[in-house]
């Protein structure tokens, strides 16, 4: 259940330019968080900016009671996060999210993660959880970025034995192009297996992935990225229109939706 935690910061280190990982002591969040959950962070001390900002959960260490967030320094809240030193306190509300990633439990399932930019961290979490739950899960991880220096988590995925494939828009690493240029041939490669695509990233990328999966009849789960002012289902600011005509709240009715459900504007 969502609750507020004043979590002690254990480490807060840059990973690539403009991106850091902050790790906090937060046993209750570590115990409850599942892939797809997000947390809301507040760093302003005097109501400006007023609202918390959402961050998907990157990793949890349940034994140590720790939670990590991977964030890009883009505004006042993330600048405030970047200033936190070990021992200081981070004000977190979480875990948030009503509908999370649902990994296919079948042993022969093929799991394809498609992450773009800051959409990569929640899928790294999902990959870790799959490896904890299944012996030798069949995971392929497509990482997309504009340039090589903006690429997230490739080394750690490779170190974990995940089949990581990269697409950069400028061709500076991996294949030159978009994640869908990697995904389409990969789906042919995996045909015959029960495939699920799990996707998170910028909206145009998710739309392209969703449309490709729908065209090829592949199950695809999207973690939708929209501004979520409250994160707890009461402000009605994060609504999303679905193909069945419903207008739902991303924060508590999602953030994960099936590709076929999302009506793109």
């Amino acid at each position: 259940m969502p609750h507020q935690v004043f979590a002690r910061v254990l480490s807060n280190d840059p990973i690539i330019a403009g991106h850091q990982v902050i790790t906090c002591d937060a046993p209750s969040l570590a115990a409850e968080a599942q892939p797809g959950h997000f947390v809301n962070v507040l760093t302003a001390e005097r109501s400006d900016p007023l609202l918390r900002k959402p961050f998907s959960v990157y990793t949890v260490d349940r034994d140590r009671g720790q939670i990590s967030l991977l964030y890009s320094i883009v505004g006042a809240t993330t600048e405030g996060m970047a200033r936190k030193r070990p021992g200081e306190i981070l004000d977190i509300v979480g875990p948030l999210g009503g509908r999370l990633f649902q990994a296919d439990p079948r042993p022969n399932a093929a799991h394809i993660m498609v992450g773009g930019g800051y959409g990569v961290p929640p899928l790294v979490f999902l990959s870790r959880e799959l490896r904890l739950a299944q012996s030798e899960p069949n995971i392929t991880f497509i990482i997309g970025a504009r340039r090589k220096d903006l690429l997230l988590c490739e080394a750690e995925l490779i170190a974990a034995g995940v089949d990581a494939r990269v697409a950069t828009e400028d061709g500076s690493h991996g294949i030159s192009g978009r994640v869908t240029d990697v995904l389409e041939p990969l789906l042919l490669e995996k045909s015959g297996l029960p495939v699920t695509v799990y996707c998170c990233g910028p909206t145009p990328m998710m739309r392209a992935v969703a449309e490709l999966c729908l065209r090829l009849g592949v199950t695809c789960q999207l973690s939708v990225e929209v501004a979520m002012p409250c994160g707890i289902g009461v402000c009605m600011g994060c609504v999303l229109d679905l193909t069945d005509g419903r207008r739902v709240r991303c924060c508590v009715d999602g953030p994960v939706f099936e590709a076929a459900e999302v009506k793109w504007s």
């Binding site: 007023l50 002012p229 402000c235």
Partner: peptide, 23 residues
């Protein structure tokens, strides 16, 4: 009522502007 289109809430200094539209 379905309410207004998005964006429906934006932040301003020490406040928010909302135009939910009574969904």
């Amino acid at each position: 009522r379905l309410g207004n289109p998005t964006p429906r809430i934006v932040e301003t200094p020490s406040g928010i502007l909302n135009a939910i539209g009574l969904q």
